[in-house]
Computed example of a mutant assay.
Amino acid sequence: MKHSNGCYISSFICIASLTLLFACSKGDKDLKDPAPIPNAQESMTNYLVHQGFDRQHIVFDKDRVVIDGDIIIGMNDLKQRTADWEAEQRSGVPATEQKRGPYLISNAYNNNVKFYIDPGVPPVWVTAIQGAVANWNSVNGTRLRLSIVNNLASANTRVFMGYENSNWIARAYLPASDNKPGVTVEINSKYNTLSATQQLFAITHEFGHTVGFYHTDQATGTQIPGTPLTDPNSVMNSTVLPWNGFTAGDIKATQVLYPL
């Protein structure tokens, strides 16, 4: 994810000209899905390309697929999406999910998406997490609401620390085909020294992925009705900026996808 001053900072931050991508999570280490066989992998790749993703930016990684360095889909979920799409192609009847891009979270979850913060998350990131929850809860005209819980068993999404000498800052799962929130957000401790406003932008961005938003500046999915064709300051843009609030497009998108 690119910094506003031309430095690079993820999915979903500023060290001279260093490219750092927001990533949507590597995911919970306990998730174990079988790797696809080659023919199945090609079918899944074709499905993702049909959704608008660049074939060169699709990476199969054991139990998950990493897209654009920032978006993660579990292997079993992707297999189901692909099977549904192939059935639709045979029937000639398009599905709603294809038109809108990502799966959304159902009404059973979207009025209280519960995040659990692992004890190992440093205070600077806890502050960013708390701020990201407040950011999404400040959007009026939508039923989408987030909260922080103290018990992992009651949470929808686990936020935890990882470390990798790599170019991602944080990464989160998209909602799966069961319409539940993305299961994890992982933060790379390599970037613990980012500014507070960049950390807040990063976590707000990643939480957007857990509830179903794609990047606004990449040609994937269908544009949300009523939102601008370009929105360079959007929190879901793949460029990390100091947090300066949601754009009108961010607010409209949230209200359209999760109306009262």
Rank of each mutant, 00 (worst) to 15 (best):
H50N: 14
I9K: 08
S106I: 01
T227C: 05
T230E: 03
V211T: 14
W85E: 02
D54E: 15
A219H: 11
C7P: 06
Q80A: 14
V133Q: 07
W168K: 10
R90N: 08
K26E: 12
D68I: 03
N5V: 00
I148P: 03
E97K: 09
N237W: 03
Y258K: 03
M44P: 02
G27D: 08
G27C: 01
P38K: 02
D250W: 01
Q198N: 15
P122F: 01
S106G: 06
H50D: 14
V211D: 14
V149H: 09
D178K: 05
A196L: 06
S11K: 04
C14W: 01
Q80G: 12
K79F: 12
A153K: 12
A202D: 03
N112H: 14
T96D: 13
D217N: 13
E88H: 11
L194T: 11
R158T: 01
S138T: 03
T193S: 15
L229T: 15
G52F: 09
K32D: 07
F115N: 15
E164D: 13
P225W: 02
P36F: 12
F22Q: 04
F213Y: 14
N156Y: 03
F22R: 06
T142C: 07
W243M: 00
N192K: 12
T220G: 09
A40T: 09
A95D: 13
L174Y: 14
A172C: 05
P175A: 01
V149D: 11
G245Y: 01
T96A: 10
V126F: 00
K32N: 09
